[in-house]
Structures are given as C-alpha cells and as structure tokens.
Nucleic acid binder design. Structure first.
Ligand SMILES: [Mn+2]
Ligand SMILES: [Mn+2]
Ligand SMILES: [Mn+2]
Ligand SMILES: [Mn+2]
Lengths: 137, 137
DNA sequence: CGCAATCCGTAGCCATTGCTACATTTTAGA
DNA sequence: TCTAAAATGTAGCAATGGCTACGGATTGCG
C-alpha cells in the first residue's frame, strides 16, 4: 500500500494487515495463558481453546514456528520463543485494555469478552492510548 | 444433539462469524456510497475503493449476488437488492457511530478512520448501544 | 463508422483456515 | 510388560480472497 494508493482505500488495506496478524496474536496469547495456567501447552488444549480441530491447530503451529514465534517438536508441548513471548505480552495487555474499556463504557462482561476478542486486533497505538486515557481519567 | 461448547471458546467463534460477514458488509456499504456519490457502481470503482484487483471484486460480487444482496448483469452497473440496501443502511450507521465514538474519545480522524474500518464488524448490539450512550451523554 | 482504449469476465495460481478420515506415536493402566 | 486409549501427525477436500495473464464486450472518439 504505497504511493498510488487512494486515501479512502487505506483503511481497508490496514484492516487486511490486522487480519493477517490476528492468528499469530491470538495463538501466542493463548499459549502464554495455557502455560501460565497449567504448566504446558498442548495441541489439543489449543483446539479446545479456539473450538477448532486439532488439525487446524497443528498446521497453524507449524506456520508460527516458521515465523519464529513458537517452537515445538512432534508430540511435545508447545513453547513460546522470546519473540513470541514479547508479542504475547503486548497482545495480552492490549486485549485487557480493550476489555476493561468496553466494560467501562457500560458493556456487560459477556458481550465485552466477545467483542473485545475481535476488536483488539484493530486497535492501533493511538486508539489504545485513548482507551488508556479514558480508563485513567 | 449439541456439543457443549466451552465458554472461553465462544468469543473466537463469534469473531469468526463476524469475519464471515465482513466482506458482505463492506461491499454493500461501498456500493451504497458509490451509487450515492456518482449515480452508479462499477466493478472497477469497487476495485479502487478497496485497493484490490477487479478480479477479486468480480468474484465477490458474484457470491453476494447468490446471497441476494446485490444484482448485476455482465458489463452492467451493480445495484443493491432490498435486502442489500437494508444491510447497507444498518452497516453504514454502525460504522458512523464507531467512527464518531473513536473521535469522541480522542483518536485523531485519520486513525479513527483506519481502526473503525476493522472494529465496526466486531461491534455487537450491546457495544453499539454503549457507544451511542457515550456520544449522547 | 470503425477502431482503440477501457471495462469486465475467465482461467488458473497461491495462502489461509476450516473440516473428516486415517496413520502413527506416546502414555497409562491392567 | 504390553496393549488400548489418547494425542498428534498426514492426506486430501472446501471456501474465501489475494494475484497475473489473457480474451471478449462495450464505449468513446477521430
Ligand atoms: Mn482475538
Ligand atoms: Mn485475544
Ligand atoms: Mn476483524
Ligand atoms: Mn469495514
């Protein structure tokens, strides 16, 4: 999305970018959470977490491993690389801000949890900062 | 018989639903806007709008036609069905609320336009109502 | 009128993320 | 120990949305 790009088309290109990062963000966040909760993260645990088949998880884990966010050996638990752990921390904090923010403006917890799961990936630095200001003020 | 879905997996399933509707929502909104602005909506105009190739637009238009949201004949302008027009109206209003809301909490216009393009599709009725309350209050 | 530019459709490629069915490995219990 | 269950991997299919290349239709202009 460079020079000749019409201004009105930029938001759509950015949204496509957000979606391209979404799986990675949700997976590292999930791996961090599951390890924090139960000590290790298994393919089947991720499958239950996202309510998808273990096959889907297995393939995505392989891709994220190529991107150096995770590592795992066959039939072994999944772990985060330093890069993955850094991303997980950032994503988890952003998710928490979005969730707290929705609750702060009066959304019930259940709907805040649902909507924040999708919204988080589209919250840029400026919007995140605005939400933090709102929560502090 | 229904399987008992784990509570923590529900937000992800809902997010997948939101994404499944996203293209339809953005396209009917774009068609409505383009017709309002220039009288008719052409494949190439949509391609410029989203910054994708005309081939991508053409295939998606065909799918949305099967879903009775649009109709078009080869080499003719694209029009909204009543169903499509109804959806466009709802989507456009929701988008406007999200955009106004982001600006109201202090996000600059440019970033509000970018983030709202993705966020809109994840804003459920409860969250939308909360945003409207905030804007009125 | 006629032709060239423009618009649009089709063919066919890729990546991603769903799935089921089946194969293989690991683990746990009798 | 040793075998059955559980966990994981592999094969292969579908839908969606990106793309380029190319061909046909429409339109505008000289
Ligand atoms: Mn998410
Ligand atoms: Mn999340
Ligand atoms: Mn999204
Ligand atoms: Mn949008």
């Amino acid at each position: 999305m460079e020079e000749k790009t019409k201004a009105r088309s930029i938001p759509f290109a950015r949204t496509r970018d957000h979606h391209a990062n979404e799986t990675a963000e949700d997976y590292v966040e999930a791996v961090a959470d599951i390890i924090a909760k139960s000590g290790e993260c298994r393919v089947l645990e991720l499958a239950r977490h996202f309510n998808v088949s273990h096959v889907t998880v297995s393939r995505i884990v392989k891709r994220l491993q190529n991107e150096r966010l995770l590592h795992s050996q066959p039939y072994r638990p999944i772990e985060l690389t330093p890069k993955g752990a850094t991303l997980a921390k950032r994503v988890r904090e952003r998710h928490q801000v979005v969730l707290d923010f929705l609750i702060a403006i009066g959304v019930d917890k259940r709907n805040a949890e649902i909507d924040s799961e999708g919204i988080e990936h589209h919250v840029g630095l400026k919007t995140l900062a605005a939400m933090k200001r709102f929560l502090k003020g």
